[in-house]
């Protein structure tokens, strides 16, 4: 088996003010994963992922990111490897122009200025925000601010991308757009870790799921297996998406109980109704 990109071995983090504790977590995340970490507010999801770039250090146990022990490495030194998109874009925006905001991380990495310029230009074009290049980012609307923070992280081209409730407050259109970029990164070989309590997002985009409850992991499996287990989700204070529930309700009529999306449901249903016709 290939080397996991993140290896977590008996990790615990003791309670501090503002940080829910996590207990004895052991887990391997394979390279090029699209992992969703789901659970109720305060289940410890954010505490767990903050260990991936050394923002938190283990109280006990070990976290290895591409073999590097995070306990002895600074967050800044891990930044080229692990990119973070935090819930609130306003927790990082500070520059006078969009361009500078996106270049900030690259400059910190010590990249040559012509290369910084090239990468910033490219990412602004890809995300279609080139027109705002010289605008103060704080003056832009929420959707654009979110996009700028994404651009700032993507520009650094980290192998692992951690998204902590990235689409809270975004409309459906912006969310789709956001995940189009994320999917492209995933296809290019990056590993994606999505922290969310939105079951529609997890079901639609992730390929594996980690379920957390009160600081412990209570399930780690493919997204399909996790979402067909309604008891496990209920135990974590979560619920299946409506299509999954509809599939299970129609199980007696022949529908599968592990459907994740509207498209899958339609495929299964049409297959079945053609058959009965």
């Amino acid at each position: 088996m290939a080397e996991p990109i993140i290896r977590i071995n008996r990790l615990s983090h003791a309670y501090e003010e503002g940080t829910p504790a996590i207990h004895d977590i052991t887990l391997d995340i394979p390279d090029n994963a699209f992992l969703a970490i789901i659970g109720h507010n305060g289940a410890g999801k954010t505490t767990l992922v903050k260990h991936f770039n050394g923002l938190l250090k283990p109280s006990r146990g070990q976290v290895l990111v591409t073999g590097i022990d995070v306990a002895s490495t600074s967050t800044a030194a891990l930044a080229h490897l692990v990119g973070f998109v935090f819930q609130n874009p306003d927790h990082q925006i500070f520059s006078g122009t969009v361009q500078e905001e996106v270049a900030f991380g690259l400059k910190n990495l010590g990249i040559a200025s012509h290369e910084v310029e090239r990468r910033v230009g490219q990412i602004l074009d890809e995300l279609e925000i080139g027109a705002f290049r010289d605008t103060p980012p704080a003056m832009l609307g929420y959707g654009l601010r979110r996009k700028i923070t994404l651009a700032a992280v993507l520009a650094m081209d980290p192998r692992i991308l951690v998204l902590d409730e990235p689409t809270v407050g975004l409309d459906a259109h912006s969310t789709n757009e956001f995940f189009n970029h994320i999917n492209r990164m995933h296809q290019q070989g990056h590993s994606i870790i999505l922290v969310t309590h939105d079951m529609r997002l997890a079901a639609r985009y992730s390929s594996s799921c980690l379920v957390m409850r009160q600081g412990c992991t209570i399930g780690y499996d493919t997204t399909r297996n996790i979402f067909s287990n309604s008891n496990l989700l209920a135990c974590a204070g979560l619920a299946q998406p409506a299509v999954t529930r509809l599939g299970s309700a129609l199980q007696d009529a022949g529908m599968p109980a592990n459907l994740l999306s509207v498209e899958e449901f339609a495929d299964a249903y049409l297959g079945l109704s053609e058959h009965t016709l």
């Binding site: 503002g18 600074s74 967050t75 800044a76 991380g105 910190n108 700032a152 650094m156």
Partner: peptide, 18 residues
């Protein structure tokens, strides 16, 4: 709390504080 969140976010963008 905000200070901590912001400092986390900037460190994740390779800002070296220490």
């Amino acid at each position: 709390a905000t200070f901590r969140q912001i400092s986390d976010a900037q460190q994740a963008r390779a800002l070296e504080l220490s």
